[in-house]
Computed example of a mutant assay.
Amino acid sequence: MTRPDPFQPADDTARGMARGLVQNAAHAALAVLRPGTALPSVARIALATDTQGRPISLISSLAAHTQALEADPACALLIGEPGDKGDPLTHPRLTLHCTARLIPRDAPQHATLRDRYLALRPKAKLYADFADFRFVRFDISDGLLNAGFGRAYRLGPGDF
């Protein structure tokens, strides 16, 4: 028996909601595969966007999730927080399937990413220049938006 696809094609409302979730997210859950295993791991990371609206973060090479991204850049981000009231599953959330692009400190785009990130996350000035920290950009391959009960959308990279 074939199950019906629960996801609707993206419309302008879904696209706007997805873009808003990405732009307004201060953090995300990052899912990676632990190196040498098929076991997943999840970490909370700070999140911002670059000047083109793509998700970025500042991560330490000492973190297990950074080591996992170095071994396999395929990852997923979960963005969206439940509100103060009501069922947490009725609040919008977005899963992004991504490829992590680790940005070396000597890369031409590092300074632009640093300026943008610190403008959006000024507290990161405390550690942004530590030798073990670098930026990662998440290139989105697709996404799944759950906008509340019965409102699920499949999004492509052009929808963001």
Rank of each mutant, 00 (worst) to 15 (best):
F133R: 00
A48E: 08
T49S: 15
V32F: 09
I79Q: 05
P122D: 00
A100T: 06
L155S: 02
Q52W: 10
T90C: 07
P55L: 02
L33F: 14
K125T: 00
A68Q: 03
F135C: 06
E81M: 09
V32N: 13
A46I: 00
H65V: 00
Q23S: 15
L96C: 11
I45L: 05
G36N: 13
G143E: 09
A76V: 08
L118M: 02
Y153I: 09
G150L: 05
A43S: 15
L77G: 06
P73F: 04
M1Q: 13
P40F: 03
R116K: 13
R93T: 00
T66I: 05
P40E: 03
D142W: 10
R44P: 04
D139Q: 07
R19F: 02
R134F: 05
L58H: 04
R134A: 10
L118Q: 01
H91Y: 12
D87V: 00
A10G: 05
R54K: 11
E81P: 01
F149S: 03
A64W: 04
L39A: 12
G143A: 15
A31L: 03
L120A: 15
L89A: 05
G80A: 05
D129E: 14
H91T: 02
L96E: 13
L58A: 00
M17I: 10
P108A: 12
R54S: 15
A64T: 04
D72P: 08
L30S: 06
A29T: 12
D115K: 08
E70G: 00
R151Y: 08
A14T: 07
L102Y: 01
A119W: 06
T2C: 09
L89D: 15
A74E: 13
G53L: 03
T49Y: 14
P73C: 01
A111G: 13
L155N: 02
G156F: 11
L78C: 14
R151I: 03
Q23G: 10
L96P: 12
D115M: 04
H110D: 12
D72H: 08
K123L: 01
E81Q: 14
P55C: 06
R116C: 14
A38G: 15
L78F: 11
Q8P: 03
D50P: 02
H27V: 00
A74I: 03
A152S: 14
V22D: 14
G83C: 08
P92H: 04
R34N: 10
M17L: 15
A152G: 13
R15L: 02
Q109F: 11
P104T: 03
G83E: 12
G53R: 12
L144C: 09
E81W: 04
L118G: 02
Y127F: 10
N24H: 11
R116A: 11
L120G: 01
P88Y: 05
R54I: 01
Q52N: 13
R101Y: 08
R137A: 13
G53T: 06
